[in-house]
C-alpha cells in the first residue's frame, strides 16, 4: 500500500483527508505565519455541517459571527487578504441581516482553497519539513 506521506503529494484533498498530513501541513503553515488559512478552511467545512434546525439557530448565528470576526473583518488578516471584496461583503451582509445559510462561507472557502492549491501546498511539498518527514 502507498504510504500516507506519498498520498499527501497527490492532491490538497488527500493531504487534508489525513490527520497526520493536516498536522504536518499546519506546522509548516505556522512557520510561514499563515495557519489561519487552514483553520478557516476547516471552520467553513464545520459550519456547513451544522444542519439548520430550531435548536441550533443561536449557535449557528454565534459561530457565523465568530468566523466573520476572526478571519474576515480584519482586512489585514491573511485570510481576509485572499478573499475577494464581493465575497467579503456578501458574508458581511449575511451576518448583519442574520441570514445564516449553511453555504454562506462556500465561496470564501473556495477562494482560500484555490490559493492553497496554487501557493502554500506546492511550497509545502518542497519544504524541509515535508522532505524530512518522508
Amino acid at each position: 500500500p502507498t504510504p500516507p506521506y506519498l498520498r499527501w503529494a497527490e492532491s490538497l484533498h488527500s493531504l487534508l483527508d489525513d490527520q497526520d498530513g493536516i498536522n504536518l501541513f499546519r506546522t509548516f503553515l505556522k512557520q510561514e505565519d499563515c495557519a489561519d488559512l487552514l483553520d478557516f478552511w476547516f471552520a467553513c467545512s464545520g459550519f456547513r455541517k451544522l444542519e439548520p434546525n430550531n435548536s441550533n439557530e443561536e449557535k449557528r448565528l454565534k459561530l457565523a459571527k465568530a468566523i466573520y470576526k476572526k478571519y474576515i473583518l480584519d482586512n489585514n488578516g491573511i485570510v481576509s487578504r485572499q478573499i475577494k471584496p464581493a465575497t467579503k461583503s456578501f458574508i458581511k451582509d449575511c451576518v448583519m441581516k442574520q441570514q445564516i445559510d449553511p453555504a454562506m462561507f462556500d465561496q470564501a472557502q473556495t477562494e482560500i482553497q484555490a490559493m492553497m492549491e496554487e501557493n502554500t501546498y506546492p511550497v509545502f511539498l518542497k519544504s524541509d519539513i515535508y522532505l524530512e518527514y518522508t
Binding site: 483527508d17 493536516i22 476547516f42 471552520a43 464545520g46 454565534k62 459561530l63 465568530a66
Partner: peptide, 20 residues
C-alpha cells in the same frame, strides 16, 4: 456559555477527519 474561541475550535475539529 461557550466563548467564541471554544465554538470556533469545536467547529474546526468537527470538520477534521477522524484518526484512522
Amino acid at each position: 456559555i461557550d466563548s467564541e474561541d471554544d465554538l470556533l475550535q469545536e467547529c474546526i475539529s468537527s470538520a477534521m477527519p477522524k484518526k484512522k
